[in-house]
Amino acid sequence: MDVFMKGLSKAKEGVVAAAEKTKQGVAEAAGKTKEGVLYVGSKTKEGVVHGVATVAEKTKEQVTNVGGAVVTGVTAVAQKTVEGAGSIAAATGFVKKDQLGKNEEGAPQEGILEDMPVDPDNEAYEMPSEEGYQDYEPEA
């Protein structure tokens, strides 16, 4: 019985440690998101679009440190934060509304985080759909 109880105690310690790591990862992701939003706020009209992409990228980098179902929630929060940063930029006159959601080359930025393969159960990952990809044929 002692062996059984000791095993359960060790398992509990492992769960607590994993929860603490997840909590730490979420806190880091939130900190990076805040950094990115402050970065966007300090940019001029020309830099705002690039700044919004930076927020998304920093958040995406930190999301990889967070495991399990938390990833889905962090990704949703990050996307809403990026959308909010863009709205703030438009409201303050840093950028025109028609410039939001495009990178410096004018290509749409939507789907940055949505296409990231995420499995809350950590069982399997699927690649994003290939609808947006084109076949590449090298020139002879």
Rank of each mutant, 00 (worst) to 15 (best):
D2F: 15
V3A: 02
V3E: 00
V3H: 03
V3G: 01
F4Q: 00
K10N: 03
K10W: 04
A11R: 00
G14M: 15
G14D: 02
V15A: 03
V15Q: 00
V16C: 12
V16R: 11
A19H: 05
A19R: 02
K21P: 00
T22Q: 00
T22W: 15
K23Q: 05
K23D: 00
Q24W: 07
Q24A: 09
G25T: 15
G25W: 06
V26C: 11
A27Y: 12
E28H: 06
E28R: 09
A29Y: 13
A29R: 02
A29H: 02
A30I: 15
A30L: 13
K32A: 13
K32Y: 12
T33F: 13
K34N: 01
K34C: 07
E35M: 13
E35A: 05
G36H: 14
L38W: 06
L38A: 04
Y39S: 06
Y39K: 07
Y39I: 10
V40W: 02
V40R: 01
G41P: 00
G41K: 02
S42F: 11
T44G: 04
E46Y: 06
G47W: 08
V48S: 01
V49R: 09
H50V: 03
G51N: 06
G51L: 09
V52W: 15
A53P: 01
T54A: 12
T54V: 14
V55E: 00
V55F: 09
A56F: 09
A56P: 01
K58Q: 05
T59L: 04
T59R: 01
T59Q: 01
T59D: 00
K60D: 01
K60T: 04
K60R: 10
E61K: 09
Q62P: 02
V63S: 02
T64G: 06
V66L: 10
V66S: 02
V66A: 05
G67A: 10
G68V: 12
G68Q: 04
A69M: 04
V70G: 01
V71M: 14
G73W: 13
G73H: 13
G73M: 15
G73N: 09
V74I: 04
A76F: 08
A76S: 07
Q79R: 09
Q79M: 10
Q79N: 07
T81F: 13
T81K: 02
V82F: 12
E83L: 04
E83W: 11
G84P: 02
G84R: 13
G84L: 14
A85G: 06
A90V: 07
A91F: 11
G93D: 04
F94Q: 07
K96D: 07
K96S: 13
K97C: 12
D98I: 03
Q99F: 13
Q99E: 07
L100D: 09
G101H: 13
E104L: 06
E104Q: 10
E104P: 08
E104W: 05
E104T: 08
E105V: 09
G106L: 04
G106N: 05
A107N: 12
A107G: 12
A107E: 06
A107Q: 05
A107S: 10
A107L: 12
A107C: 05
P108A: 06
Q109M: 04
Q109V: 07
Q109H: 13
E110C: 06
E110W: 04
I112D: 05
I112F: 04
I112V: 12
I112P: 09
L113C: 03
L113P: 11
E114W: 12
D115M: 07
M116V: 01
P117L: 05
P117E: 02
V118I: 04
V118L: 08
D121L: 08
D121N: 08
N122K: 14
A124C: 14
E126Q: 03
E126H: 11
P128A: 10
Q134R: 13
Q134E: 05
D135F: 07
E139Q: 04
A140Y: 05
